[in-house]
Design a protein around this nucleic acid. Sequence first.
DNA 1: CCAATTTTATAGCGATCGATAGAAAAGGTG
DNA 2: CACCTTTTCTATCGATCGCTATAAAATTGG
Lengths: 196, 196
Amino acid sequence: MVTAARGRPRSFDRDAALDKAIRLFWRRGYEATSVRDLTEELGIGAPSLYSAFGDKQQLFTEALRVYDEKYGGFIDRALADEPTAKGAAARVFAEAPERYTRRDLPTGCLIVSGDAGTTSTEIIEHLRRMRDSKVDAFAAKIRADITAGRLPADIDPRALGRYTMSALTGLAQAARDGVTRAELDQVAEIALRAWP
Amino acid sequence: MVTAARGRPRSFDRDAALDKAIRLFWRRGYEATSVRDLTEELGIGAPSLYSAFGDKQQLFTEALRVYDEKYGGFIDRALADEPTAKGAAARVFAEAPERYTRRDLPTGCLIVSGDAGTTSTEIIEHLRRMRDSKVDAFAAKIRADITAGRLPADIDPRALGRYTMSALTGLAQAARDGVTRAELDQVAEIALRAWP
DNA sequence: CCAATTTTATAGCGATCGATAGAAAAGGTG
DNA sequence: CACCTTTTCTATCGATCGCTATAAAATTGG
C-alpha cells in the first residue's frame, strides 16, 4: 500500500533539513538559535518549518534524538561493544577528542551544551535526563564488572560513571574553547589514568 | 579631599546591587538574564542601572571580575598558598564540590557557564580568556615542580593543567545538573587520582 | 476539465529584547 | 530662597523573538 501523497508535494528534503538544524543547534545551542536562523539555514519559509517539524521545541527534541544516534552514539557503542567497563572508558576517551573537533562540524557536544542559556525548564530537564542516562549506563557496566570480579569491590559505580561522563563534559567544553585535537588527546589520556 | 557628591544621591547600595546581579548572571548566564530581570531583582529602574553600570555587557564584565575575587578565587588561592602543584590540585578538588553547591548561592561556576547560549563573540572571548588563564597558571606551577624535580620530566605541563581545569569544568557542570555535594566529593577524589 | 488537499510565500501578530528621551525629584552650594 | 547637578520615574523606542492567518501554488483523484 503506497501512501497517497495527496496535495502539493514538499519542496525540500526533510532529513537534510533536519541535519542542518542539528548542526545549527549544535553550534549555537537551543536559545541562541532563532527560528529566523533556522529558516535561512534550511532554505525554507517559517510556515514550512512549522508544518514539517511542529514548533521550535519539537524540532530541537527531534534534533537531539537524531544527533544522539548519528553523532553522539560513540559512547553507547563503546558500552555495547567493549567487554569491560574500563575498555569502554578507554575507547570513549580515545575517540572523544576526534569526535569533538571534527572538520565541517561544530566543536563540542550538543547534549553537553545544547541547553546553554535557556530558561525553558523542559529543555533543561530533557538534556539533564539524557546526560544522566549516560551516567547510569556507565555505572551499570561498572557494577557488572565489580560483580564479575574485574574491578575492586570498594569502588562506587555511580561515582566512577559520573567521573567518566564529567571528564567527557570537560573535554567537550574545552573543544568549544578551541583546544586542539592534539591537546585533547593528551587530556583524555590523563583522564583515563584516574580509573582503577 | 572629600568628593563633592553633588546632585541627587543614589538611592541604592551599588555593591549590594552588583552582588545581586552576580548571582542572577551566575544562575542564568549572560544571555538568559534580561535587563528586566536585573531591574526587578536589584529593585531599581532601568535608567538607574544604566547610569550606575553602563550597559548590560559592562555590568556583566564587572560582575565577572568581582565574582572571580569573591566566589571563584579558591583556585588562585590554592595556587598561591600550596607549595606544590599537586598540593594545589588536591586542595582545589577538595574544595570545589562545596564551592559549587553552596546553599543560598547558584550551583556551578559563572566563569564556566556564564557565556552559555550567547552570540556575542566579545563575551565568549572574554570568558574563554579567563578560563585559559587558569590553565596557564596551573601549567606554570606544574612546570616549576618539574624543574625542581618534584614531578617527572616526561609529563606535559599544559596538558595536565588543562586536564585539571577541564575536570573542574565537569564538576561545575555536574553541580548545575543537580548532582549532590556527596557525589561530587567522590568524583573529585577520583579526578585527583589521574595526577602523577 | 473541476474539486480536494497540502505546501508554499507574504505579511504581520503580540511579546519581549536592550536601551533611552524627557521631565520630575532630591541633594549640595551660593 | 534660587541655581546647579545628578538620579529618579514614566513612557516609550526600534529590533527581534516565536509563531500564524491568509491566500496563492502545486499536486492527486474524479
